[in-house]
């Protein structure tokens, strides 16, 4: 766990990637009247572990504001006066059930069922939708990348991979037509990302005026929605972003980040 961090040409200036090395955070613990650093960790108990370490070392936590990634999207949209209503998983499953039932009727809404899925199996369909979202963030360039990846596979896996994409996009589209709210909390994060880039960063500034640095901690993966948020932040705001991968997967993920960032217009989606 030595100080392995990267600043190469493919990585934007204000993005620093670490493998492990969380102790760096403790060096920045100091008294502040307002927090200047957002500390973001996807696992709920990890925030508690960091706070426990800070307390144990008798370090002040004033400089940090601990949040989960979803809360960031909500706050940015709220500050912009936009709706933050999102369908939760319980309701999403029930909406999917009705989408599937409609698809089984005489009037199919252009939705083919994935292999092994039946109208009684909304969880599997939701899993496909969530996987497509986490891998592509519904970004047009990544959707094209998925299609390329599928085409490169042997049959019949090529068709299966292509069909999974169709189902994922089809369900997402069908869900959007059935609710005025955001389909998921991830959709809020995507909206927030677009809002940050479209306003040249002022949407971020309205939500987090005092924040100078965002630290993502304890990652075992970097989903497309999180990648695009990070991308949008370093492109449109002066915020310094530090990503700390976990040690077992960090080297791999660090090498993949330049390609993950190589999409234009982060937060853009394939739906009009």
């Amino acid at each position: 766990m030595d100080g392995t961090h990267t600043r190469d040409d493919a990585i934007p200036d204000r993005l620093t990637l670490h493998v492990g090395d969380e102790e760096r955070l403790f060096e920045r613990a100091r008294r502040r009247s307002t927090p200047t650093e957002l500390v973001v960790s996807p696992v709920e108990l990890h925030q508690r572990n960091v706070q426990r370490r800070l307390r144990g070392a008798e370090l002040p936590t004033d400089a940090f504001r601990f949040v989960d990634p979803v809360a960031i999207g909500g706050r940015v949209l709220e500050a912009a006066g936009r709706s933050t209503a999102a369908v939760d998983r319980v309701d999403r499953l029930s909406l999917i059930r009705s989408v599937l039932e409609a698809a089984g009727s005489d009037d199919p809404p252009g939705l083919s069922l994935p292999p092994g899925a039946s109208p009684g199996d909304p969880r599997r369909v939701e899993q496909l939708r969530a996987d497509v979202e986490s891998i592509t963030n519904f970004h047009p360039e990544r959707i094209a990348g998925w299609t390329d990846a599928a085409t490169g596979l042997d049959g019949p896996i090529d068709d299966e991979a292509a069909e999974i994409l169709d189902v994922g996009l089809g369900v997402e589209r069908a869900l959007r037509s059935r609710t005025a709210d955001a389909v998921s909390e991830t959709a809020l994060l995507r909206r927030a990302t677009r809002s940050i880039t479209a306003t040249d960063g002022s949407a971020w500034d309205d939500a987090y005026p005092a924040i100078e640095r965002l630290t993502l901690l304890g990652l075992s993966s970097l989903s497309a929605p999180h990648t695009d948020l990070v991308h949008g932040l370093v492109a449109a705001t002066p915020v310094e972003v530090h990503v700390h991968f976990r040690e077992g997967t960090g080297e791999y993920l660090r090498r993949r980040v330049p390609d993950l960032l190589a999409v234009s217009d982060p937060g853009a989606e394939a739906f009009e």
């Binding site: 998925w146 390329d148 993966s221």
Partner: peptide, 21 residues
Amino acid sequence: TTGSLAPQPAWVGGRDRDQFV
């Protein structure tokens, strides 16, 4: 172009590896 897709190391036991470490 597949490089832009976000991989999940958990698919090949990456998360288990992280947790072990």
